[in-house]
Design a protein around this nucleic acid. Structure first.
Lengths: 110, 110
DNA sequence: CTGGATCCCAATTGATACTG
DNA sequence: CAGTATCAATTGGGATCCAG
């Protein structure tokens, strides 16, 4: 997984990749673009991710200021994740990927 | 690494991620967007990639129809890689990432 | 019962050496 | 020069344990 504390990127694309250059991060952003979600909801909608990896990604995205985490002190535990303003701004990148996929999906048997 | 012969993606974003959801693939597209390149040139400009991983990615992208590979039967060997039309169409996705990085780089200390 | 931390093991990645 | 083989290192999945 690509993390922030590696050497600084040389160009804007590498900058973005440092924060989003990962399959799961893009999908997390997609899911949170529709609104705040609990940990379990994310895990369910991100079909196939393990709790360990989901936790790791959310922590890094929180450190990077893309995601905010709200913990409710209650039983059973409840933790909500949402996008920060910077996180929401990634919608443009997500949409570009979405449009490309829409346009070319036939060519790949979808 | 995400490959094509996994289960079919459910939505357009996953479609794109199947083909491009990887740091190196984005950078390979970026480099080839400027024109045909030899294996060694790619390896040098993709700072830090190993031959093995570069070869693997190029093979998969070739299978997926994003990249075309031209081998010259000569010594020393010469292999040129370029983007197919579909590969070139990924420029939109690349550009979105590039624009985002340009806009937010200050916030991440670049 | 939920979020998540930890441990163990399989799978992937990466560095290096080597070949045609 | 482009690619393969080999081996070390890192990552990821799943089970289990734990706190609140």
């Amino acid at each position: 997984m690509l993390q922030q504390n590696e050497k600084l990127p040389a160009c804007p694309v590498e900058m973005t990749l440092m924060l989003m250059g990962d399959k799961w991060k893009v999908l997390i952003v997609r899911d949170l673009l529709t609104g705040t979600k609990r940990f379990g909801e994310l895990k369910k909608s991100l079909n196939g991710i393990s709790q360990k990896v989901l936790t790791q990604h959310l922590r890094i995205m929180e450190e990077n200021g893309l995601v905010s985490r709200k913990v409710y002190a209650q039983i059973p535990p409840k933790v909500e994740y949402s996008l920060t303003d910077v996180g929401v701004s990634l919608k443009n990148v997500h949409d570009a990927m979405c449009q490309w996929g829409e346009q070319y999906k036939q060519q790949f048997g979808c």
